[in-house]
Nucleic acid binder design. Sequence first.
DNA 1: GCCTCCATGTCAGAAACTGACATGACGTTA
DNA 2: TAACGTCATGTCAGTTTCTGACATGGAGGC
Lengths: 197, 197
Amino acid sequence: MSDPVITRIGGMGRWEPGARERLAEAALELFLERGYDATTVADIAARAGVTERTFFRQYSDKREVLFGDPAEYNAVFTDAVAGAPADASPLDAGAAALRAVGAWFAGRHPYARRRAAVVAANPALQEREQVKRLHLTEAIAAALLARGAAQPAAALTAELISVAFHQAFVRWVAADEESDLGDLAISVLGELRGLAR
Amino acid sequence: MSDPVITRIGGMGRWEPGARERLAEAALELFLERGYDATTVADIAARAGVTERTFFRQYSDKREVLFGDPAEYNAVFTDAVAGAPADASPLDAGAAALRAVGAWFAGRHPYARRRAAVVAANPALQEREQVKRLHLTEAIAAALLARGAAQPAAALTAELISVAFHQAFVRWVAADEESDLGDLAISVLGELRGLAR
DNA sequence: GCCTCCATGTCAGAAACTGACATGACGTTA
DNA sequence: TAACGTCATGTCAGTTTCTGACATGGAGGC
């Protein structure tokens, strides 16, 4: 067996812990340095000090390394929806979720921009991003149903919230300076309501 | 060189024409028979009477065989947007596009259901479908801009039209009997406007 | 009748993924 | 303390997707 990890600290396990995190970091670095297509999984694994096989045990495919745990991310939305006042309308519950996710992204603007640059440069990654958005929309719809909203209002409200967040995020990432994503999203939602008048 | 095509009609070319269409048909059949994952590109090519290499010359990847020419499809929307009365609001222009695409799908319900069954059974295909939807949304936004709509109204209106179409299509495909997709979409758009009140 | 075009075939190969089995530090238990 | 099971990882062989380079031979023009 070759020597996969250089750094060893006394009393550590057989392998350096945090292989998953090292892979994610190595991948983002390499994608920015050489581009997504020019980076092989073997490259990523080598930089992280593991084998290719370990990469595929951590991430189901090459793209997935840029996407954190979706359940955790969606929960920011769904918890906020579930926690909204019982008498709030579906749209107001959704607005609460926009505020919550806005707070969650506070301080992450620099990272979000690095990541967005990689995704924007590659269609395959945009695909995955879109799917995550779809799953998010479905999760929001489910959360709205759980708090008593009716169909099809739940599905459509979820779509509106998803649109507002998506558009707000695009603008947020496009700006050089970090602004309040929650404010932006609520503002987009207002524009949306104006349009549908 | 092996014998790639069985059927030969006098005076035909060196190869049976319509390789692209045969591949699409063979692929849909095989996906329904064995499932997407259990079907290799070699299988599809064999049934269509061509080689694997020809498949990849016709379609950029295995999934693409289930998706027609996107430019042609998007044009149904964008032409209708461009052709709407000059004094129509962006949302009304979008509604006209919903009617147009509804007409385009008339009679295609049986095919749409077969195809939807395959897509629903496979995450990789859902990914591609989502991307097509994103590109459609962008195309609609561009068409609205071209007829004088302002940003961000154009982008947001495009999203609303896209949501209305998507939701209507889901319901349309779910029904056993074919209904008027245009009517459905306009109706969903009405629900959306009611929600945003 | 010759010649160019071009869709297709043929072939070799890179890269993404998967299944099966081996390894060896760690914690547990006797 | 010695045996033992656990489990993340390594190793290896194989399948499948996708690409580049070059060959082939009917069709249509000259």
